[in-house]
Design a protein around this nucleic acid. Structure first.
Lengths: 338, 338
DNA sequence: CTGTTAGCGCCTTCAG
DNA sequence: CTGAAGGCGCTAACAG
């Protein structure tokens, strides 16, 4: 079975390859009749243009790379959803790479992507990333980047984030208003922009109420959940006075909930918890867990749109295109049964 | 700034393009000294081969396409995780496409992928898919497919699934053993292999215990959650005798839980629920929700491995390579607090 | 061991 | 309106 390419179509129609190519692109300089003949045969033979030949020639891949720490975090799943939606609308394709919060892997991925496989990158940096040389090398390679959620301030490009500082502040005030006196803050690593911002909101809220910073638990590792819960358990046992917890990462909110229960701390009587989370099922926890929910889908879609617009118009991405979306603090009510 | 490609390297080193190419591929027919010179310069200039030129020439893209209904379902997130792991180990790339359970979109995606963008496809079919012509057209186009989870029996290829029939049977027996007399089965559409298998397990378990099929609620739509819950609410109100629910889809387990609570049916005293779910946070529901958990990560990884092995050895995929992994029925204990 | 040549499939000047 | 020719960057056969 002979391959179906432009040459084949041209032969069967007694036309030149160039004409067939133009006809399929609906070029103005080809007669309607010819276009029709070409299109009919192309459809009949199920012609599909070779994406790579076209990419090579046009020097653009119609593909964007999405580089994220993990996909099992619901935030990133929702973001991918938004990204895919935007990409599809612009006829772009989406390559997925997971760093698992491993800096070395992030470097390798970025380096590889400079080989022209993608026209642009959506990036949420790994928590272990401090050295950003690999990201800086994208600019000279002419590969635009848009950061989402976990940004990298040193790079002059657009970021799509949520109001992390305000959310941290708001979460802390929420706990204070509910009568908490000793509020612990849980975060993972502190070199991530989002962690720092949420933490600052937490600290400032305490200060505004004349309180000193309290237990600020920085969990070193993002992957080892059991270990994180162990550290959390230690903290709560060492500090029985803790009556409020602000968990600034999706996973930690659930862990905090779990550990409190395990230790017999009643929620919300003994300990009140507010946590970042995009898990819908959290709404079924009983007692309820108050959550800060990010518009994850919108974040992904916005980030992708900014990138795609820049690619389509071949214009550079400016930091001024950054977008800050608002998270929502959702206070669940206890579902009184009966 | 001149581009860094083989030509550039060749010029600077006074070598031919071919030699440079061979050196970078560690070919046997290049002197160690030359290899060293080439590699040194390549590293210094951060040379990265153009993936598309290479793909065009070699007629293989080192890329696999993953076509799934959605990514916000935790099962698929975990599966992608496994797929990415396997792909990375084989130096393959992963393109993601979401069908949103829309048959037309699935057809368009598959058609497009025949343009050589991917070497193979991992597919979990959309729930609306009955016409499978588009999938059948992949074989002549020489694009191997491996199905996972939602398979398509008519296509002779490898499937990676879980023991759906047994799980359905087991779930039903679990409810019967717990004293249920009227067990409802919830599923989405009934043209999916997994739904049919789980349903058959349910029916056979009832029959084995001398019971007739009971409320078999087939929910038409997969996307409209509110509507599904509405139908579920109607069912439970119409049938107050229902004391057991077997939810054969991740989302429906949570919905069933939610609706029961809303209607004041106590769990598990009034209604016992067993549902497929891969959500970790379900373990924090109180009262507990017994779940059937699929080894989602392993399913993705296995499916990818089968596909990648076939691609690397250029051998066809045989139905005999299919794998059936076992789900796990996890009975949560109530976390007595205090 | 190295160089020359041809061509993957497509797009895009330039001619006519 | 259509055709001929060149080249995107890389690889593979064939020489030497």
């Amino acid at each position: 079975m002979k391959p179906v390419n432009l040459k084949r179509l041209a032969e069967e129609l007694n036309l030149s390859i160039a004409t067939v190519s133009r006809a399929l692109q609906d070029s103005h300089e080809v007669s309607a009749a010819t276009k029709e003949r070409v299109r009919a045969l192309a459809a009949a033979l199920h012609y599909e243009p070779n994406a790579y030949a076209s990419s090579l020639r046009r020097n653009q891949s119609k593909t964007i790379g999405v580089v994220i720490p993990k996909v099992t975090n619901h935030f990133f799943s929702l973001a991918i959803n938004g990204i895919e939606e935007a990409a599809r609308q612009s006829n772009y394709h989406v390559l997925i790479y997971l760093t698992h919060d491993d800096h070395a892997r992030e470097v390798a991925i970025i380096q590889h992507l400079k080989g022209g496989r993608v026209d642009g990158i959506l990036l949420s940096v790994a928590s272990g990333t401090e050295d950003i040389a690999h990201i800086q090398s994208l600019a000279p390679a002419n590969i635009p980047v848009v950061f989402f959620d976990r940004v990298c301030a040193e790079i002059a490009t657009a970021n799509v984030t949520t109001n992390d500082y305000e959310s941290g502040y708001q979460a802390t005030e929420h706990l204070l208003a509910a009568g908490c006196h000793h509020i612990a803050h849980l975060l993972i690593s502190n070199n991530l922009s989002i962690g720092r911002n949420r933490q600052q909101g937490y600290l400032d809220a305490l200060q505004a109420h004349g309180l000193p910073p309290d237990a600020d638990l920085v969990l070193p590792d993002t992957t080892n959940r059991a270990h994180n819960e162990e550290l959390l358990r230690e903290l709560l046992q060492r500090r029985p006075d803790i009556d409020g917890i602000f968990a600034s990462v999706e996973h930690l909110a659930v862990s905090a909930y779990h550990v409190c229960r395990e230790l017999g701390r009643r929620i919300p009587e003994d300990v009140k918890i507010v946590g970042f989370s995009n898990l819908e099922s959290v709404s079924l926890f009983d007692p309820p867990l108050t959550t800060i929910t990010q518009p994850a889908h919108d974040i992904g879609r916005e980030a992708a749109r900014i990138l795609l617009r820049a690619l389509e118009k071949k214009r550079p991405i400016l930091p001024s295109q950054s977008v800050v979306l608002n998270s929502e603090l959702v206070q669940r009510r206890s579902s009184e049964q009966g």
